[in-house]
Write a protein that binds this DNA or RNA. Structure first.
Lengths: 260, 260
DNA sequence: CGATGTGAAGTGGTTCACAGCA
DNA sequence: TGCTGTGAACCACTTCACATCG
């Protein structure tokens, strides 16, 4: 429709909400599965269920991409796979470097989902001379001295940091200086980067702590809504959960020193 | 990021915003570092910088916990460490089980940040008989047949899934049936769980895809900076968009199928 | 004074509900 | 008829700005 030209609120010409961007990979994964089963079309309801979101949100998300559906029918799976891939920039090949090939780094390098779908591990880099040359996931580990050269020669703009926390900022600085503008950080530390550089972090321990918060809350709310957050509720199943070391009594009292 | 939205939003007198909860571990980490350096107090400004947020947000976050600061001075480090630990439920010991001890699972088990700070790996579980009995991170791997028994005997309420995608839902169901109410999922699949069970997911490939989106955008709008491997997918953006024909058969782009 | 704690304003995201179209 | 696409209401979180108090 020459008519089409999705009217965009003058204020935002090309802005897809961040929350929507974060869900596109989810839709893409669900769509890819459908595609492999040769399903030709899906409704927003079905796709939403497969992606674990509600259908209104999905339709709103897709509306930012354009009008890719057919009213009364649904969405063409193949077409949508392509459009989302393109929107995410996955129709091109992104070379990435991974720095820090310890337990976690090696596991990530071997992780299938990494290499697939638009990403290619251009180099594995470590500071330990003993690691250099060793093949991990079929790629020989290179020394960090060559980091800048590797990045430049491969045109890398995305880096993954899986070093110990103490080395992360230093590695980050070198990556950025060498031209990397997107970083996925697995080290449990805050990275500071100049404007224009994106950092996303994955911290296992933080995720667990968030779960613990909710878990604690569940244990405490069985009865009516009493009051206070009541610590020491331990076991959930009538099992032998450790009595826990929280000897603290009521709310907010002694600054007892906790173990680090 | 957050999952497990399915919560009874009912009368929550003691409601700490989810976004705040997600930042508490960040503050805790920064505070712990200060504590180790024997720093007695911090201002919201300093602590915010260390945690990578702005100070207004930090103060607002802390205001949900109570008035733990001193006007004109700042916050007592030790005291705050304790209060946040308690709020997060880290003053007790959470036994966790990890299912799926492949590359990633083994790496996670070895990951230091896991065991520290309130969590204890009660068991490593795998379906592969060849893995059973092998020590990983100092713990002998147990067979999944014993999953229910292990969970009950240890009073486990938090489980970590690091299996292949295909096995994840099945493992999840068994965990939940056995009494687990919080799950950290590393498998690239959507888990469905009953109400009252929290799921958080970590998906490496999704994080990379989000970075690729922003990376692509940068390449399209800025003139210079390193675009060794960056074609001009951006052209599609600015020029075509949903301008051509109808919703379908637009820019003459082929629905290229992406690899799984 | 100086930094916290917090109403109030602002922003972004979700949900509703229905108009519009195949 | 059925499902998409979307304005509008709603809600959660962030930021501002300043009263408050050690």
């Amino acid at each position: 429709m020459a008519t089409g030209r999705t009217h965009r609120p003058a204020t935002r010409s090309r802005g897809i909400p961040e929350a929507t961007v974060a869900r596109l990979p989810l839709y893409l994964r669900a769509l890819t599965a459908l595609s492999e089963r040769s399903v030709p079309t899906v409704s927003s309801e079905e796709l939403a269920a497969a992606a674990g979101v509600n259908s209104a949100k999905l339709r709103k998300d897709f509306s930012y991409l354009g009008s890719y559906g057919t009213r009364g029918v649904g969405y063409d799976v193949e077409y949508l796979v392509y459009q989302i891939s393109r929107e995410l920039g996955l129709t091109q090949d992104w070379p990435i470097v991974m720095v820090g090939i310890g337990n976690l780094g090696a596991a990530l390098a071997n992780y299938g989902g990494f290499a697939s779908r638009g990403f290619r591990v251009a180099a594995l880099i470590d500071a330990d001379p003993a690691m250099v040359g060793k093949p991990v996931a079929g790629i020989a580990v290179q020394h960090i001295d060559d980091l800048e050269k590797i990045i430049e020669e491969n045109g890398v703009s995305i880096g993954v940091i899986a070093t110990p926390a103490g080395a992360a900022q230093q590695v980050c600085d070198r990556l950025v200086a060498a031209g990397v503008t997107s970083i996925l950080n697995f080290a449990p530390t805050v990275l500071s980067v100049p404007d224009g550089v994106d950092v996303r972090k994955v911290d296992l321990s933080i995720e667990l702590q968030i779960l613990a918060f909710h878990e604690q809350r569940k244990a405490g709310e069985e009865p009516g809504v009493g009051e206070a957050v009541v610590p020491q509720t331990a076991a959930v199943r009538g099992a032998a959960a450790p009595a826990a070391g929280g000897p603290k009594g009521p709310d907010g009292d002694l600054p007892a020193v906790m173990p680090a």
